[in-house]
Design a binder for these strands. Structure first.
Lengths: 322, 322
DNA sequence: TTGTACGCGTTATCAT
DNA sequence: ATGATAACGCGTACAA
């Protein structure tokens, strides 16, 4: 209701002075500052953000687009939000449920200056559509994509998977079974590539054992445990798609009386809570650093800075299952 | 980049005319409309939303606050979004993770006119704090609360539960076991009240069987099935806290060779997908109507309308488990 | 049917 | 240290 002029009038100063007080500008005497502040407090005044945004040409609002909202996505969102808020930005979340229109609304809000930037975690529309909107503001993504206009904080799982394999090798395991997460996803592709390079390096037969595809649930892990029990020629290690699957595999194996890691080793992926709980060796994946990098990229673009990105590294978390 | 004046100049008209074209106002001749539209298309022009918001005094943006994001919350959000968008409103989502500051940011955005209204699905701050913000714009909630300034679309589960009980009675079941969802929640309280009234009405002994509290998972349902098997004096029906629990109970009972509904009946609650899948009798709960009512309330407040709310009714969905 | 001119609430430049 | 005043980009009485 109350605007800056009203405050100015009541405090007996000009609106310019009030603005200075609000924004902590220098060159305003202590007595006037106090007088103005009193009136502000009394009238419960806050500047109208629409006016500020119009004047400044930015809203300090960043949109995050995601197709859904699960644990890892939530982790990213939470991390991003924290960094953004430290720098005075607010976040608005768009859960698309896979609907293109919902995503387009976010993109349109960028075009129409209601958003300063966009994080497109998991897209719905074609990349070409999204790329078109980069002219209106920075857009970064979490997915793997090689488009110059859309920087990504995607981490190539080749390195992470290799880390797991090398660790198993160093521990003396030689017959490793791979359980891949999705049938044809990019992560699986990179993991397969890592495994082949690994076998070549140590002169192992890459096809000595079955490769499992499309598995990542606890139940799937349990089934794999049974599969292992039935093999006459038993592999001595599992490199799993996720901690979840590894957890199912581990607990079911123990239920069947199999000793881990002496009879068989298990490596997970993601370093989630469950891996911590079960003391599962796994690969750590710095989601919060990815989120921070996403924000740094946006801030660099928005404010013409050149802040360095954090190096994104997979890390082996060695625990009790290898 | 381009603003309304640039369009006006290039089209050889005044900015007022351009504005009329944009907003589909009458009294603009077809030839000029076309000329203006051409220039708009050519320059890829869209009005700056900050300017529009400032001028109109509203942003057409509604915030939704939620502590997390699960299936039912998602259903509500999706429904609300749909209705809102049909009326030209966009949604911005705040997942608080239980942090008060995140909620306060949403409330502050309302105060500072960046949001027209707020749906506080599940609050974190004290109601008194939230109530204070109702002076800046309409706030409605999904939770049960009796504060005049904060209308609610909460549904009292007394009726719904009674529906389930009456149905069991009509089907001839007389010894009913209640499995309540939370220890001391309001829903449980209302359900207990319903059960007592029910027993009184039909002269049944309300304490003939154990009452279970704090259970709502599939696993809990499975355990209840085993409990039933061990009872010498078996009850003939279960009124469950959720479809989830009912599903666990139902499937485990059948696994144990118990025939449902001839030996024992099961009623769920929520009418979720799983109840549909398992052909489970349950109580339907119109989340989408609640969402629509929330939007209607907000729109009524915002635009001074008096649109009627939809009646919110529980419905018995009679399927194969009773 | 079209144009002029003012106001929405700020911030920032330039005087003073 | 403070005050006028011009933008920011748009919508809309009012006039023509």
């Amino acid at each position: 209701m109350a605007n800056i002029h009203e405050i100015a009038k009541l405090a007996g100063v000009s609106s310019a002075t009030v603005s200075r007080v609000i924004n902590n500008h220098p060159y305003v005497s202590e007595p006037t500052r106090q007088r103005v502040q009193e009136v502000i407090d009394q009238l419960d005044y806050v500047p109208n953000l629409n006016a500020v945004s119009l004047k400044k040409g930015m809203t300090k609002l960043i949109g995050i687009i995601s197709i859904s909202f699960n644990d890892s996505l939530g982790l990213f969102v939470r991390g991003f939000t924290t960094y953004a808020q430290e720098h005075g930005f607010n976040i608005t979340l768009f859960i698309t449920n896979g609907e293109k229109e919902r995503e387009l609304e976010a993109l349109e809000m960028l075009r129409r200056k209601q958003l300063d930037a966009l994080v497109c975690m998991i897209r719905v529309n074609e990349w070409s559509v999204i790329e078109h909107y980069t002219q209106y503001g920075p857009i970064v993504t979490w997915q793997r994509v090689k488009i110059e206009a859309i920087p990504s904080v995607f981490m190539d799982q080749y390195q992470g998977y290799m880390l797991a394999l090398e660790h198993l090798y160093a521990r003396g395991y030689r017959s490793i079974v791979n359980v891949y997460g999705s049938m044809r996803g990019l992560n699986t592709k990179e993991r397969i590539r890592a495994y082949h390079d690994f076998c070549q390096k140590y002169d192992l037969n890459a096809d000595a054992f079955t490769h499992f595809y499309g598995l990542n649930s606890i139940e799937a892990g349990e089934q794999i445990a049974h599969w292992w029990g039935e093999q006459p020629n038993k592999p001595d290690a599992f490199a799993c798609s996720t901690d979840c699957l590894a957890a199912g595999l581990l607990t079911e194996a123990r239920r069947l009386g199999v000793s881990v890691p002496s009879e068989v080793a298990v490596v997970g992926f993601d370093n989630t809570e469950i891996s911590h709980l079960l003391d599962l060796t796994t690969i750590h994946y710095p989601i919060d650093k990815q989120a921070e990098n996403a924000f740094i990229m946006i801030r660099n673009a928005l404010e013409g800075l050149h802040e360095e990105l954090h190096p994104l590294e997979f890390k082996l978390v060695e625990r009790a299952t290898t």
